[in-house]
Each structure stands twice: as C-alpha cells, then as structure tokens.
Design a protein around this nucleic acid. Structure first.
Lengths: 222, 222
DNA sequence: TCACGGATTATGGTTTTCCGTAAAATATTG
DNA sequence: CAATATTTTACGGAAAACCATAATCCGTGA
C-alpha cells in the first residue's frame, strides 16, 4: 500500500472527501494542494529530500484566480510530474467524461487510473488505489471504460485546431487566411482552409460551421 | 440553528465534505440525495409527515444517467421546492460563476444563499448557514458578490434562446423558420429571424453567427 | 531528368447569410 | 375612428461561405 500521497484538488469539499478515503485505507501520510504549482513544488522537494511521494491524486481542471500560475491544468501537472518522477503512480480524478480526453491521458501522459467524479467515485477511488498499489494494472471507472476502445481521433492536427479556435473567436475565413499568411503557416490559401473545414465537418458530422464550432466546444477540443 | 437539513448533490466526495460542515455546526439530522427527483420526494414526504426540512443545500448541475428523471437540474428542483414549501431556506452550492445565472437564482427563484464551490467554500458554507439561520439576510460568496450588481440582460427572450439553440445544433436559418412555422411560434418570417440575430450579435458584440454561438455557449445561455 | 502522386492553390458557380429599405399588419392613443 | 407607433413581413443586392473541378507545386523514386 502507498506510504505517502499528495492530492491536487481545488474544491475544498472534495478534498475532505478524498481524505476520508485515505483514512479508511489507513494511509495517514498525505498532503494536499489547491494549486498545481504548489503541488509540483512539493513533489520536487520531496524528491530532493529523498522522501518522494508514491501516489498523486489529481483533478484536471482548476479554478483560475487573480494570481499568476505556471501550471494551470491537471494535464500539465501530471505531465511535468511524470518527467521528474517517472515511477510515481498517478490517479486522475475528474468529472471529465469525453472519451478521447480520457484515452489521451492513458496513451500520451501515462496515468495509472482514471476515476470519474460522480455517484460512486468514493468506491472507485478505493478500488483504484488498491489495484495500482499492488500491481501495474490500470484502473478506469466503469462508466467511461468504453472510451479506451475508441478509435483514434488523431487525424486532426494543430492547424485544424487553430482554424477552429479562430472561428470561435469570431474571425472570418478570409481573415484567418490573412493571419496564416502573415504568420507563415503552411496552408494559407482559401481552398486549403475550405478543404480542412469541409473535412472537419465531415469528421464531426456537422451540418455547417456554426454546428462544427458548437460540437468541438462541447468536446473540449477548443 | 437549523434542525433538519437535506443535501442534493451527486458527487459523493462533495457530499462527505458538506456533511463534515454540518457535524461541525452540531447539525445531526440531515439526509442527502444524489438525484433531484429523490430529493423532491423526500421533501414532499417530510411535509406530509408534519416534520419538514428547514434547509435545502443543492447543487445546480447533476450528472445524467441512463435512467429517466423528471427533474434534471438544481434550478428546477429549487423552483419546485419553493412551490410546495415557500418557507424553507435554500442554499445553492455550485461551481457556476456566471453573474447573470447567479443573479437570476436570487431574483427569480428566491434562493437565500449562493456558495461558490472552490478554495474556501467550506468556510463560506458555514457562514451562509449561520447567517440565514438567524435572519432573513441573504449570503453570497465574496468572489461572485459583484454579480448581483450586474445590469439586467433581460432584453433577451425565449425565442432568442430557441434560435441560438437551433443554430448551435446545426439548423440553418431557413430550417429554423420552417420549424417555427410548424410550431406556430409568433415571429416566423425570414426577416424577423434575421433581425433578431442581428440584435443578438449587436448585444453580445459578436462578429458573426459562429462567434455569437461561441459566446453564448461560454456564458451558459445555451 | 522525368514521370508520378499527393498536397496546395486557383477558379467559377451555387447557396446561404447579411443588411438595408420599404410595405403590411398589428397595437396604441387621443 | 383616425392618426401614429411598433412589430412583423417582403424584397433585393452584397458579402461570405460552400462545393466541385482543374491547375500548380514539390518531393520521391525509376
């Protein structure tokens, strides 16, 4: 079982809940941080002190504040923690239920468990901790387990995302082309942008551009 | 101080946190429901049994499930509870931080307190309970207190919302007009819809329709 | 060097949206 | 009831978006 745990979670009420779980599992040595930056510093300090954490439980979205932060999301935090301490076990604990987002956490960032905040998340969290503490198995909440089977959406590249973001910010197609030309971004002709939009609409089964932006916003892509 | 409290909140970890608060305040008689329907039934039953609740703490957004529900949001729950038990005190406990949404909760539904889930929500919740238990004062978390001063956005009516929703669902203007004609919705001419869209774009400072839908989605209007 | 394939760009025509003006219908007021 | 607003509808031209086709560029391998 884990000896030293850190929780990154901004909503204090949830923090309390997680701490109850840890107490239940007889884990007494835990800290929590309400900010990603703080969590990262603690983790790095623990490594230097030769007393590293062996489990990170992290939320994905954090409230933004007046103050400046270096790390603004759980995704980033997890990624940076993996760099400085590859062996640490990581549980993502979030309301996020978009399949491709969860899949990406496992495939690209290498989390060990994903627990969906919800009706049974306390039980799921306990299960997750038990499983990953004794083996290298992964855990995922049953409600979203199917998302791992999703086929890759990764035909969509960075330029596509940029186009979508510009559109949602009120930029017209012509203006986007201008911007691309001025920034020396590779495909910067009217037809290229049109073609990409057409592909995106096809891919996301969108009737028109408004619909496309609406869908991709809902999916959290932009 | 309150004698009998009911919590409507779907995320179990948060539920645990709230319960800690109540125990701290020496409130021992509380129940919780993970579904709005269930919470409403409990409240109605308590009235019939002549032992009503005197405080409702409710989240606003609830996860949807495979099962059918009559009441799907905290807004609806609060509204219906107000109808059957006008005297009950109500605290909305949510991450919602859109000013006009919060203002509407106070103005139209008549909540007694709004506590923003976040870094200090436990303390805020305690304060809210203390204040509204001893007086008819309202409480609102300081981070969002300014939202009550917002000027009314209420030049936007139901038809506007419907148009926006249809647009974001990929319906073209012509199709929307068709739908309106078939549903006997009053303004159902091409120019009327165009004029409304133009007003909305003006109001929300949107460059075009895509932008408009993007903005209103971000604001939580649709 | 040349032929080939893929990606990018150019062109033209159709549909949809945008926007102003004006007519018609409906409400309001004296 | 007449006169006047206000709202809704109709129309037409301009702009933007949509879509199919063709030309051009560019790297690869024969």
């Amino acid at each position: 079982m884990f000896k030293k745990v850190i929780i990154a979670e901004d909503i204090d009420a949830i923090n309390l809940g997680i701490q109850e779980v840890l107490k239940d599992l007889n884990i007494v040595n835990f800290q929590h941080s309400k900010f990603c930056d703080e969590a990262f510093l603690k983790i790095r300090k623990a490594i230097q002190d030769n007393d590293p954490y062996d489990l990170l439980i992290s939320d994905l979205s954090f409230k933004t504040d007046h103050r400046e932060v270096k790390i603004s999301s759980g995704d980033e935090l997890i990624q940076k923690v993996r760099e400085v301490q590859p062996g640490i076990k990581i549980i993502a604990y979030s309301v996020e239920d978009k399949g491709f987002r969860i899949k990406s956490l496992f495939d690209n960032i290498g989390i060990d468990a994903f627990v969906l905040k919800g009706l049974n998340s306390i039980e799921d969290l306990k299960k997750a901790i038990n499983i990953i503490s004794t083996s290298d198995q992964k855990f995922i909440s049953p409600e979203v387990a199917s998302s791992l089977q999703e086929k890759n959406n990764y035909e969509i590249d960075d330029v596509d995302i940029q186009i979508l973001k510009h559109l949602s910010a009120g930029t017209s197609q012509d203006e986007i082309i201008e911007i691309f030309k001025n920034s020396n971004i590779k495909p910067n002709s009217k037809s290229a942008v049109e073609k990409r939009l057409s592909k995106l609409k096809d891919f996301f089964k969108a009737n028109n551009t408004v619909h496309l932006v609406s869908i991709t916003k809902d999916m959290g892509i932009i």
